[in-house]
Simulated scan of single mutants.
Amino acid sequence: MNTARVIEKEGFAALALRLRGEGINNLDLLTAVEQTPRTLFVPPQFSGDAYSSRLLPIDCGSFVEGVDLAVRLLHLLNLKSGQRVLEVGTGSGFTAAVMGRLTERVLTVDRYKTLVAGAQQNIEKTGVRNVIVRQADGSNGLVGEGTFDRILVTAAFPAMPRQFVDQLVSGGMLLAPVMVSDETCRMVKLVKTGSRFDREDLFEVPYLPIVPHQARAL
């Protein structure tokens, strides 16, 4: 068995144990994660850390969140077949690929052309075909693409980004990081019921502040 396969097998087994310890034992989600080799989504020199909870650097000054956090967010989204998902902040493409296995269609956007191209290649290697990767300014969501059942944002806003709310169906959910102080960023969950919204502040996350506009150079 080659080194990558060993890392995948042992890494996933350890991850599954840690997640069960947190009460995350959704079989569909765990299967989707297992079928999406994490080593494809981290730089080769960090493949040994693919299943760790460390932040790993990628191009354009960005990073891949630890795998535990990525799966915890996917668990919170409660993804189902038939759903349409918008992700703002593609990064390496890992979460988009896993979401693609669980839902009907995923549209993921990033401001960096380099990250979009890399994520596209990574996702293609996994055989997932229902994820569209696009370079776009996601700071206002994605107007003109209709509504979504789930929106996942991985760049922090100074306040809850209400501009996304119109792009959610009734019963839809938004997960977005919000800066609660100069140093602290917290994941916030918003569920839309008719014209009402239920907000729940969750846990601290390491995301960077959102930067509007597409990046021209990178």
Rank of each mutant, 00 (worst) to 15 (best):
M1P: 08
T3Q: 06
A4D: 13
A4K: 14
R5V: 12
R5Y: 04
I7L: 09
I7Q: 02
F12M: 04
A13E: 13
A13V: 02
L17H: 13
R18D: 12
E22T: 00
E22L: 13
E22M: 10
I24W: 00
N25D: 08
L27M: 10
L27T: 14
L29C: 01
A32S: 05
A32D: 01
V33I: 13
Q35N: 14
Q35A: 15
Q35V: 06
Q35M: 14
T36W: 03
L40D: 05
V42K: 11
S47Q: 15
A50M: 10
A50L: 06
R54E: 02
L56S: 03
D59P: 02
C60T: 07
S62R: 05
G66T: 01
L69R: 08
R72N: 05
R72G: 09
R72L: 07
L73K: 13
L76C: 09
L79I: 11
L79Y: 14
Q83E: 13
E87L: 11
E87W: 06
T90M: 08
G93W: 13
G93S: 13
T95L: 15
A96Y: 07
A97N: 08
A97C: 07
M99T: 15
V106M: 13
T108K: 01
D110F: 04
Y112E: 01
K113Q: 12
K113S: 09
L115V: 00
L115T: 03
L115R: 04
A119T: 02
A119I: 04
T126K: 06
R129C: 10
R129E: 13
R129Y: 09
R129M: 07
V131C: 07
V131D: 06
I132Y: 00
A136I: 02
A136Q: 10
S139P: 03
V143C: 08
G144R: 09
G144V: 10
I151T: 08
I151N: 03
I151R: 04
I151D: 02
L152V: 12
T154N: 10
A156H: 09
A159F: 12
P161I: 12
R162D: 09
R162V: 14
F164M: 11
V165A: 07
D166F: 12
Q167Y: 04
V169F: 07
S170I: 03
G171T: 01
G172Y: 09
G172T: 08
M173G: 01
L174I: 07
L175V: 03
P177R: 03
V178L: 09
M179H: 06
M179I: 01
S181R: 04
E183M: 05
T184W: 08
M187P: 09
V188I: 11
L190I: 15
G194W: 11
S195R: 13
S195P: 08
E200Y: 03
E204Q: 13
P206H: 05
P206N: 06
Y207N: 10
P209M: 08
I210Q: 00
V211M: 09
P212A: 14
Q214I: 15
A215P: 04
R216D: 12
